[in-house]
Design a protein around this nucleic acid. Structure first.
Lengths: 256, 256
DNA sequence: GTTCATCAAATTGAATGCAATATTATAACA
DNA sequence: TGTTATAATATTGCATTCAATTTGATGAAC
């Protein structure tokens, strides 16, 4: 049913997917204004499907739509990241709690397989592959919860978190090894079907990710502090988006 | 900044608000197909803003957009209600947990005042007023959490739940008195700032509401069981929407 | 009598055009 | 020189129009 991929989707959906990618990869920088016509030419579509996509993105919180003033990419400050991950924590916690009860043994076996694959990539310090499997495991847990509303909310929040991850753009070794340990515990809870324990584990897993993200945030509170409120187009100009350092670099954010 | 209400909003927003109301009041019945042009005439707008509103409603899960086949109001079965309230449970639980820490004494005083007002209406069996204050209390707790993502998710889920409530359209006395007791406990937790306890209380409060809703659901699994999957426009024709019985009737769903 | 094919009407998807509003540049004035 | 008013430009919001697909119906063949 979802086999055909490229040509089948309506123009509006393609634009939507494209824009989402451009936003969470920070190709469209947080806080920057978006003018319709240039984007239309770039995506080779008319304004109508673009504007429809804008409305959806606005309801998803990825852009802001100022009446008669056009759109701008939603700013992404420390507070926004914290808010998103707080909610994501209880969402994914609930997913774990439900998955521990509802997941079939086959699904758990699949997750276990993914886990060991991920562990192998961790040992070899292959971050993109590690990351892909990490996402796949979390996605499997979400699906195992068997709750469509939960899945939808999770995917939505994932977009915002991916945006933050692109801004930070690195993962230090200490956090990486800690995350791996947490995943060991997560798998353990799942096979034991320890729902409540898994819930707390997943939630704290995300809270730790929050701490890691915030500690690496580019400019905590610099001169662009008013970007969130003032209507003037501050381009934010965060040159940190491409900074390369001693830590591992994330290149593949999410196959979502 | 948000003082002007009616004439200032863009046409698209007005249509969006109108359609949301029509959907969660079941004026547009779950599962029924929506044709664009008649709605355009009825709302006195062109197809462009209507279609933009459709895209947003689809991303909110209130309608489904079938490619080249138009829109239909999202069906609302037992599973959908359960899914929505499961998620809402942890969302509002988190809100309580955060509010217990972050709410100012003034806010708690306001909630206490609302609570006693609500209690007075409960004693007089004034359901619409009770309901309005009930919503206001929950809204205050959400706001006190100080998390914009949480607020957005909660408001979204509220729409779906309101839709379910309209379908059920009544509240039996036993559940009413139980809900009132639960609210007593909620207020107590809040003034004691017992976050974890409040979290569990709010979650179970919603789980009880879920049970109540499901037990009063019009047709659990009747001949319209395939309405959720088949593409044919089954009008659902749930005559139970206006049924009047021995229980109190809900007329005012949410001032949201 | 049932089923399949072809055609007409209706409906959706997208592009273009026009009016309204905001933004920017220019110029006049204090 | 700095500030305000005004006009020109650019951009958004919405309506209209056209093309593509689907739905429903009529008729022919088995």
């Amino acid at each position: 049913m979802q086999s055909q991929k490229k040509t089948s989707a309506s123009l509006h959906d393609e634009v939507l997917v494209q824009l989402r990618r451009m936003i969470y990869e920070c190709e469209l920088k947080p806080g920057s204004r978006i003018v319709e016509r240039p984007l239309c030419e770039r995506l080779s579509v008319s304004r109508t499907p673009l504007r429809e996509a804008f409305k959806v993105l606005a309801s998803e919180g990825l852009i802001e739509l100022l009446p008669n003033c056009g759109a701008r990419v939603a700013p992404l400050g420390e507070k926004d990241i914290r808010d998103a991950l707080e909610v994501m924590g209880v969402i994914e916690g609930l997913a774990g709690e439900l998955a521990a009860v509802r997941a079939s043994d086959d699904i758990i076996a699949e997750i276990r397989a993914l886990h060991y694959q991920m562990y192998a990539h961790y040992l070899r310090r292959e971050l993109p592959e590690y990351f892909r499997l990490n996402q796949a495991i979390h996605q499997k847990i979400i699906q195992a919860a068997g709750n469509t509303v939960l899945s939808a909310q999770y995917n939505l929040l994932s977009l915002h978190v991916a945006r933050a991850r692109y801004m930070v753009n690195r993962l230090d070794d200490e956090r990486w090894s800690q995350a791996m340990k947490e995943h060991d515990a997560i798998l353990d809870c799942l096979v034991r079907r320890a729902g409540a324990e898994l819930r707390e584990l997943l939630r704290s897993h995300l809270m730790n990710k929050l701490s890691s993200l915030l500690s690496h945030l580019p400019q905590p509170e610099a001169e662009a502090a008013d970007a969130g409120k003032s209507g003037t187009r501050v381009a934010a100009e965060n040159g940190a988006a491409h900074r390369v350092n001693e830590a591992a670099i994330i290149r593949e954010p999410a196959p979502l």
